[in-house]
Design a binder for these strands. Sequence first.
DNA 1: CTATTAATTGGTCGGCCGATTAATAAAATA
DNA 2: TATTTTATTAATCGGCCGACCAATTAATAG
Lengths: 206, 206
Amino acid sequence: MTSKQIRNPEATREALLEAAEAVFLEKGFGNTSLSDIARRADITKSLIHHYFNSKEGLWQEIKTRRFMVYADRQLEIIQDAEPSVELLRASLVFYFDFLKRNPQIVRILAWIFLENDNYDCMQKDKELIDIGLQKVKQAQAAGEIRDDVDARFLLFVFIGLCQHWFQDKEHFIADFGTDGLPEKLDDGYLEAIIKIFFEGILPRKR
Amino acid sequence: MTSKQIRNPEATREALLEAAEAVFLEKGFGNTSLSDIARRADITKSLIHHYFNSKEGLWQEIKTRRFMVYADRQLEIIQDAEPSVELLRASLVFYFDFLKRNPQIVRILAWIFLENDNYDCMQKDKELIDIGLQKVKQAQAAGEIRDDVDARFLLFVFIGLCQHWFQDKEHFIADFGTDGLPEKLDDGYLEAIIKIFFEGILPRKR
DNA sequence: CTATTAATTGGTCGGCCGATTAATAAAATA
DNA sequence: TATTTTATTAATCGGCCGACCAATTAATAG
């Protein structure tokens, strides 16, 4: 009755990554023990060290893996964007939609912030920012966007409005409720920030 | 030579709170040990249990204490605000300025909502939100603010623009640099979000 | 002044943490 | 098939964690 057990190193490695990410993002790095992860993945604790050397190494791999997807996608979004208001708006929708489908990245960023985790992948982020910055400046030079606000602040608000939503969405629901809001809450918020960001909050003149 | 040492329970208690807050906010709850705190405060570890029963109790007290100051101040800000655009702008400045002088609160808030265990704080926050919401709705009814955006989203963006800055300011500086920006970076950002939030990003027509 | 309470100290406890090791079994290689 | 490599397991390590306790000393109440 000795069932010949099959081995699949890549699968177990992936299972560990998956379980670890779930627990880390829920409780944070410091509040998570390797036993937690092993239990969740139903894999022996020792295998974590076998594949990732250390708890820190595991966390690092989770972060970089997610971040690379994030960076690649963001690069596409930015590069496709033309310096016109229309396409800038499309970029915002793309970016928002990406975060919506990959909420983990927002939580990772949140934990990095909270636990003062000096994450070195920020070099890549800087490069992305620089590209986006050029687009905004071009749009400003073309008169498509007001130029009395520094382009950096514009881009920062752009990014922040999206990230902040997925970071504090729970908070929003708890405090504000959802009565009378579209069942697709995300889309409702997106519509709102597009209006505010691209039109301003003053009543229309015409 | 036995120097008669004086005791000051309130002072030591306060010293413990101060040290604990510093370390907790720097490294996070899970990454902090009671030894860290005791060492920093130069007070025996046992006294932490004497005053706060447990590590969790200490953390809980730090959070609620800061939050209460936050809530009180925010109540003042909100209550003073009249449903006019001018006074709403003043409220934003007040709120921003408060966060600027109490940067800890941003981190604490992030934790309170990440570990949704603090019922008192959540409840109180909800009450504050409701008051602010009424003001916004009044302003909308008076035609001072556009009413084609749900008041909840407006308030959420209002708060988020301020909080997000103090949460990710470091990232901004690292990624964007500060060349050509006012040496008072906070004020520069505040000016920017006022322009964007209250006027929109489209070029002026007049 | 005495008795009681509260603050402070140092030492100690069991337990879990992350990490390591040695042994075993499956895969890959030759 | 024989041999090497790699995946997996279980047992174990020292260390530090949070918590507790007993003794000491200052402050306070009577």
